[in-house]
Design a protein around this nucleic acid. Sequence first.
DNA 1: TATACTATTGCAACTCATTTGCATTTGCAA
DNA 2: TTGCAAATGCAAATGAGTTGCAATAGTATA
Lengths: 133, 133
Amino acid sequence: MTSRNTPTRRHLLAELENTDRPVSAAELHQALVSAGLDVNKTTVYRQLDALVAEGLASELDLGEGIRRYELHHDNGEHAHFICTECGDVYCLPVDETVLARGCKEAEARGFAVTSCSLELRGVCSSCAAREAH
Amino acid sequence: MTSRNTPTRRHLLAELENTDRPVSAAELHQALVSAGLDVNKTTVYRQLDALVAEGLASELDLGEGIRRYELHHDNGEHAHFICTECGDVYCLPVDETVLARGCKEAEARGFAVTSCSLELRGVCSSCAAREAH
DNA sequence: TATACTATTGCAACTCATTTGCATTTGCAA
DNA sequence: TTGCAAATGCAAATGAGTTGCAATAGTATA
């Protein structure tokens, strides 16, 4: 037997489907609690681990000191932009050839590349607009 | 007044200069202690923060749950390859145009990109060789 | 439908990197 | 020298994530 259809899992998947940006365990836990589900934080962590192990979700670390999760996209690789002002994370589509070329040097050294991510930091348009008072 | 020339700072800079891969605060602390310097871990963290603030070093998070530091290289941007077997981190030179193209999409959305990093994961050549017994 | 097996959950305690408050020490400029 | 801000050490706190264990609840099977 594998994963069971529990309330936590259902809500977690629903929550992941409803966001277009990677979310943290804490954010997910908060969302489930707000939705009236009395779920423990530990359970959220374990369910997320399970989803990742099953290949339904992927885990990412954007250098904030926490992990974020997102459902697997079939629509190819993408980059992440993190706004250093508001902390918002945006997913950006990236030309496959960009990442492929980035891997070239690693492969030339005999490294087998299994995953590849491009991470951008800066100020998002909303914050830039706000600062221009 | 700004940064003072303290023993911790001197040794820390020397240690950072002597490695070709990003090092963690714990590794640096261990190195200083091994070198006979009785330095507190907190001090190492604070000195590293200072070096980053001064622009001498840069901080990076490779998704290991810890932060790594490296001296600023003038020789352009580079990518990091993390071996999922042995945990070793390698710096790889990257064609500037690769990163520039990766930023294009972000800039098209009105985001001001200030930093950009490419992170690769996979198996390094040593581990691959070892596994082929 | 009842039963049994195993995945899932909650709770509390734990780990571990990093931070913080505060009193003390120490570069360094005047 | 002297004074003062920067740097340090120590202990305690923070916060994300993990673990052991007993209790609960899906689900396959009889």
